[in-house]
Design a protein around this nucleic acid. Structure first.
Ligand SMILES: [Mn+2]
Ligand SMILES: [Mn+2]
Ligand SMILES: [Mn+2]
Ligand SMILES: [Mn+2]
Lengths: 221, 221
DNA sequence: GTTTAAATTTAGACTCGTCTAAATTAAAAA
DNA sequence: TTTTTAATTTAGACGAGTCTAAATTTAAAC
C-alpha cells in the first residue's frame, strides 16, 4: 500500500466507508466515530479531498472516490481477516477482537494478509458475521433479519451479531449466540417481552433488545 | 505499555540497547542504525534523557537507564517472538522476517504476546538463533564461535546466523545453514579459503566470509 | 601546543494530526 | 421571512519526528 497513506488516513477512510451507507457522511458523524473534534475531521477531510480519496463540498458531507473506497475495503479486509485469525488461531475472546484488529490492520504486509487468509481457508465472514472483502475488493453478503422479528416456532441460523457493545459481546459469547449457531424461537412474550430459544433441549431466555442485535436467516427444521 | 512510549521511542531504545555492547552508544551509531540524520538522533536522545529512559552527557554518547532497558527488552521480546511466529506458524522465508517483525513489534498487545508465546511453547530463541528475553526481561544465551574457526573434523551445531544481509539469509535458507542443523567440518582450505561441510553424505562448500557469519557450538559425533 | 578533521549539537524549518475558540453557513423554528 | 440553533469551517496553536545548514566541541595529527 502507498506509504503516503498513513494509519490515520486509513482509519478515516474506513470510517467514511461505514458511515456513507445512505448518502454522504457528515463531518460530525466522522468526527464522533473517530473520537476527534469536528475541526480535526474537517482538516483531514480536506486533505483526503486534495489526495483525491474523497469528494467533499463544504457543509455537504463527504463521499469516497473509487480510489478511497479501494483503500477502505483493503483496510476492512485486513480488519476482518485479523479478527477471524485472532479468534480461530489464537483463541481470543469476542470482546478483545476489535481493538487488536483495529491496530494491527494498518501494520501487516500483503504477505501476512495472504498467509493468514490461506491458513484460514480464505474465509468469507469474520467472527461477528461481517463479510470479508476479497483482495480485489468485492464484498458479498446475505440478507439477514433481526432475531426479534422471527415468529414463534421458526428455526433460524445466526448470521451476524452486533459488535459495538463489549458487554453485549461477552453475553453473546457466554450464551453461545454466535454466527452459525442454530436455534428455534420457542416463544415470544408480547410487548417486546423476552424471547425463549431452544437448542435441542437447552433453553435460553433473552431480552427483546438483545434479539434486535442478532441477525438471522431462516432454516428448515 | 505506557502510551506515551511511541513507535519511534521504542525503536530508538532498541537501537541503543544493541549498540551499547561495550560502553555508551554514540549519536552517529544510533543515527546510522535508525536511518536518520545525526541531528534527529540528537533531538530524540535529548527527549529520551528528559523522560529518564537514557543517560546522556553531551558529546559523550548515550546509555540506557534501567527504565529504558526494560522497554528495550520488551521490544526485543516482541520482535523475536514475532519472527519465530512468522516462521513457524506462517512459514515466512528467512529474509522477510525482520521487516515484518520490526513493524508489528510496536503494535501487538500483551495478550497477543502471551498467546503466541504459549502457542510456540515459550521459545527461548528466534529463527536466527537470537535469545528471546522472558516477560520479566531476563535474557540468557550460550557462547558460540564462528564456524570459520572450527577445525577440520570437528562436529558442530549451528546456533546462530547473522541476520543483517538479506542476500546472505536467502543463501542460508537454500543451503539449510540454520540453527539446530549439525554439520561436520570436513576440510578447510588455507588462507581464508573455502570450507567443506558434510551432513551424512551430502557436502556443502562455503566461503570463509560466510563461515564467519555462522556461529556454532561443538558437539560429539 | 596548535591546527585540523570528525563528531555532535544548535538553529530554524517542515509535515502530520491534533486541539480550542471564534467565525461562518445551512437548516429549522417562529 | 426573519430569527435561532446546530453543524461546519477557519484561525491559530501545539507536540512528535524529521530535515538541512551552521555552529560548536572533541579528539587526532602535526
Ligand atoms: Mn484502525
Ligand atoms: Mn468484525
Ligand atoms: Mn520496529
Ligand atoms: Mn532475529
Amino acid at each position: 500500500m502507498d506509504p503516503s497513506v498513513t494509519h490515520a488516513i486509513e482509519d478515516y477512510l474506513k470510517t467514511i466507508y461505514k458511515s456513507q451507507r445512505n448518502g454522504p457522511a457528515s463531518t460530525s458523524e466522522v468526527a464522533r466515530a473517530m473520537g476527534v473534534s469536528a475541526a480535526s475531521a474537517t482538516a483531514m477531510i480536506k486533505r483526503l479531498a486534495v489526495m483525491g480519496l474523497v469528494d467533499h463540498t463544504s457543509y455537504q458531507g463527504v463521499r469516497l472516490t473509487p480510489g478511497g473506497e479501494k483503500i477502505a475495503l483493503q483496510v476492512v479486509r485486513h480488519h476482518r481477516l485479523l479478527e477471524t485469525y485472532l479468534r480461530q488461531v489464537l483463541g481470543y475472546p469476542l470482546d478483545r477482537l476489535h481493538d487488536e484488529a483495529c491496530e494491527l490492520e494498518h501494520h501487516i504486509s500483503e504477505m501476512f494478509e495472504d498467509k493468514i487468509s490461506a491458513l484460514l481457508g480464505d474465509p468469507t465472514h469474520d467472527p461477528h458475521g461481517h463479510p470479508i472483502p476479497t483482495r480485489s475488493g468485492r464484498i458479498v453478503d446475505v440478507a439477514a433479519f433481526p432475531l426479534a422479528e422471527a415468529v414463534e416456532g421458526q428455526d433460524v441460523e445466526i448470521h451476524r451479531i452486533a459488535d459495538e457493545d463489549l458487554e453485549l459481546l461477552r453475553y453473546f459469547e457466554e450464551q453461545r449466540l454466535l454466527p452459525h449457531e442454530r436455534v428455534r424461537v420457542y416463544s415470544k412474550a408480547p410487548m417486546r417481552g423476552p424471547i425463549e430459544l431452544r437448542r435441542g433441549r437447552k433453553r435460553t431466555l433473552i431480552g427483546y433488545d438483545v434479539a434486535e442485535k442478532v441477525f438471522v436467516v431462516s432454516v428448515n427444521a
